[in-house]
Amino acid sequence: MIPIELLEDYLIDQDDGIKKLLTWFLNLVMQLEAIQQADAEPYQRIDSRKAHRNGYKERSLKTRVGELRLKKPQFREISFETKVFDRYSRVEKALINAVVESYLQGVSTRRIQDIVSRLGVENLSASSVSRISQELDEKVEEFLKRPIDHPIPYLYVDASYFKVRDNSRYVSKAFMIVMGVRDDGYREILGARIADGEDELFWSGLFQDLADRGLSGVKLVISDGHKGIQKAVEKSFLGASWQMCHVHLMRAVLRNVAKKYQEEIAEKIKIALEDETKMQQLIQELEDRGYSKSADTAERFRFSLWNYRAFPREHWRRIRTTNGLERINKELKRRSRVVGAFPSDKSFMRLGVSILIDINEEWMTTRKYLSMDME
């Protein structure tokens, strides 16, 4: 039974109350795990006991509601094992692996050396790094090769860029991500790949991989206006429509507008996105004001701005932008900031895909992204 004081905290301050409830629950889970592994209740004197308690070790866990401080049970005779930190440990391992791999390759900066020291892993051997790498590589491969069992009516594609070492130099590489909304309304990260760029060839290869794993039922593909994506979508998803992300359209148009007028034009773009007539009027206005490049951009994407309206109105807000992927890209940037530049493609994939696995697991255990009942 939940302690009454935790329920009172929840009613008074829901944010802090949720953290306390989650902390209580996860500590309780570990207590039950400890009872199972020791084969005895705390202080219970029985011959079948396998291990004796040896206090607790405080450990932090980052969650959607903030960082939790948990009490992990300790045993004298054996190591205590828990599922609570599995997701946390996977990303943590990938992060440490990337940092230490740079360190061992002799390409680390003073900042990396300082991080290694603070992590307490200066003496981590090359064989240990290799073992961790192999374990993470297996998890990455398993995730990226799993079958796609559900039809995917809505497909979102986007890429962000990261510094990766290529032979003796560091270059910017594209991390391409494909997310879908399944026919049951749940979101799922379907695939990811690191590539030298976003040319049609790279995207087509990723889409073919998804098809080989069972991707079907695609009706709408949402992305930015990159020509490589557009061409790959046209050839890979016959019969599907392509939707230009409204947020990316606004950014592209404003790129060639004087800064002092950007706020004004941004408001006009929002209004113009309501229908084609208003967009035509805005294109003419941009041309008349000398922003011919912006006018050309709006004209180029004009026939791909309203394809989302062929689908249920309740879906419109979430299928006219790639905002869901934008949030993932921000999280990838935030979590990888400590590394800075990755020593190899594989090193980046270990961390990047580990983060995607965590996000995907969270999506599959929370409520549906869209209600598909009205289709």
Rank of each mutant, 00 (worst) to 15 (best):
Thr23Ala: 05
Thr23Met: 04
Leu28Ser: 08
Val29Arg: 00
Val29Ala: 02
Leu32Thr: 09
Leu32Cys: 06
Glu33Leu: 01
Ala34Asp: 12
Ile35Pro: 01
Ile35Lys: 08
Gln36Phe: 08
Gln36Pro: 04
Gln36Ile: 12
Ala38Thr: 06
Asp39Gln: 14
Ala40Arg: 08
Ala40Val: 09
Ala40Met: 02
Glu41Cys: 00
Glu41Asp: 05
Glu41Lys: 07
Gln44Lys: 04
Ile46Arg: 14
Asp47Lys: 11
Arg49Ile: 11
Lys50Cys: 10
Lys50Pro: 07
Ala51Met: 11
His52Phe: 02
His52Pro: 02
Gly55Val: 01
Tyr56His: 10
Lys57Phe: 12
Glu58Tyr: 14
Glu58Gly: 11
Glu58Met: 14
Arg59Gly: 10
Ser60Asn: 10
Ser60Cys: 01
Leu61Ala: 06
Lys62Trp: 06
Lys62Ala: 10
Thr63Asp: 04
Arg64Tyr: 15
Arg64Thr: 15
Val65Phe: 11
Val65Gln: 12
Val65Tyr: 12
Gly66Ser: 09
Glu67Thr: 08
Leu68Thr: 11
Arg69Tyr: 00
Leu70Met: 06
Leu70Lys: 06
Lys71Glu: 14
Lys71Tyr: 13
Lys71Thr: 10
Pro73Arg: 14
Pro73Gly: 14
Pro73Asp: 13
Gln74Pro: 08
Phe75Ala: 13
Phe75Gly: 08
Arg76Ser: 13
Ser79Gly: 15
Glu81Phe: 14
Thr82Met: 09
Phe85Thr: 00
Phe85Arg: 05
Asp86His: 07
Arg90Cys: 03
Val91Trp: 07
Glu92Gln: 09
Lys93Ala: 08
Ala94Arg: 04
Leu95Arg: 15
Leu95Asn: 03
Leu95Val: 05
Ile96Asp: 06
Asn97Phe: 07
Ala98Trp: 05
Ala98Leu: 06
Val99Phe: 11
Val99Gly: 05
Val99Gln: 14
Val100Ala: 01
Ser102Arg: 12
Tyr103Leu: 05
Leu104Asn: 01
Gln105Asp: 10
Gln105Tyr: 05
Gly106Val: 00
Gly106Asn: 02
Val107Gln: 10
Val107His: 04
Val107Met: 09
